[in-house]
């Protein structure tokens, strides 16, 4: 049964990308365990505003685990200690009375801090712009049923396509690698006949952009898969490796 708890939250505060950040600890009393983690932060911000202080800045939007906007490294885990959820779906019943909760931003060279817990993830957009698409214009495409696709292929493509682009994989990777994100898109499109045609070009372009933007080298630790709120599999990374290497050897 949910009850009310008293907690301490130790939160990273940083004015701007250039300024030095620091931790600040806040006491919160009577937080319902039925509230979500972000609602707890709402309560904290309400309190800060009432005290005339500046609220904590953090990214969030849909609050139902699909938009990928929320982030936060909570007690050593991206999206917190619960499994298969985003921060917005994390509830306070995962924490106990008297606990100190440490909240940090995603820390990666690829995701510079904008303010407090808000980071800049436009690198993901840039990688997508480098090749994360099928090159078709609007209109003039064949009938949707003209190309049958095996159900299992479609399902595998869907598994990969479930990525929400939140960046937890980069945040948790000790190498700051974006391979899981990139491989999910490369896999989705390589598995489907529509995307197969430019699969080699796509893999090369997206990997090149990922490397250029300062993400680290994948060493297959598998942490990304474990912490991914959507359980995207590292089999996708194997598939990307294969796509990339075969493309390069063909050149």
């Amino acid at each position: 049964m949910d009850k009310n708890i008293n907690i301490k939250v130790k939160i990273w505060r940083q004015r701007s990308p250039k300024e030095k950040g620091f931790f600040e600890t806040y006491n919160l009393e009577n937080i319902s365990q039925g509230s979500s983690f972000l609602e707890m932060l709402d309560i904290l911000n309400e309190k800060l505003i009432n005290e005339g202080k500046e609220p904590v800045v953090f990214d969030h939007d849909c609050r139902e685990g699909i938009c990928g906007m929320c982030s936060l490294y909570i007690n050593g885990h991206p999206h917190g200690p619960d499994e298969d959820v985003t921060t917005c779906q994390l509830h306070m019943r995962k924490f106990h009375d008297g606990e100190t909760i440490t909240v940090e931003p995603w820390r990666s060279a690829g995701f510079p801090v904008i303010r407090d817990l808000m980071v800049n993830r436009s690198a993901f957009d840039e990688i997508m712009q480098a090749g994360g698409y099928v090159s078709v214009n609007t209109g003039g495409v064949p009938d949707a049923n003209s190309t049958p696709i095996a159900k299992d292929k479609a399902e595998m493509a869907m598994d990969a396509a479930a990525c929400i682009g939140c960046g937890a994989c980069v945040a948790t990777c000790k190498n700051g690698s974006a391979m899981l994100f990139v491989s999910a898109k490369v896999s989705q499109l390589a598995l489907l006949p529509q995307g197969r045609i430019e699969a080699a070009r796509r893999a090369k372009a997206m990997v090149a952009k990922m490397d250029e933007l300062g993400f680290g080298n994948c060493t297959n630790t598998g942490a990304c898969e474990q912490e991914c709120p959507k359980s995207i599999s590292i089999t996708n990374i194997a598939r990307l490796n294969r796509e990339f290497l075969s493309a390069k050897f063909k050149d």
Binding site: G76, T102, R107, S108, G176, G216, T221
Partner: peptide, 21 residues
């Protein structure tokens, strides 16, 4: 390179995810 990619600030608390050797 990988250390550089992690950025200049380290996590204060980090936990090895379950299932990662």
């Amino acid at each position: 390179q990988n250390r550089k990619a992690r950025g200049s600030n380290r996590y204060t608390v980090s936990a090895r995810p379950k299932g990662v050797s």
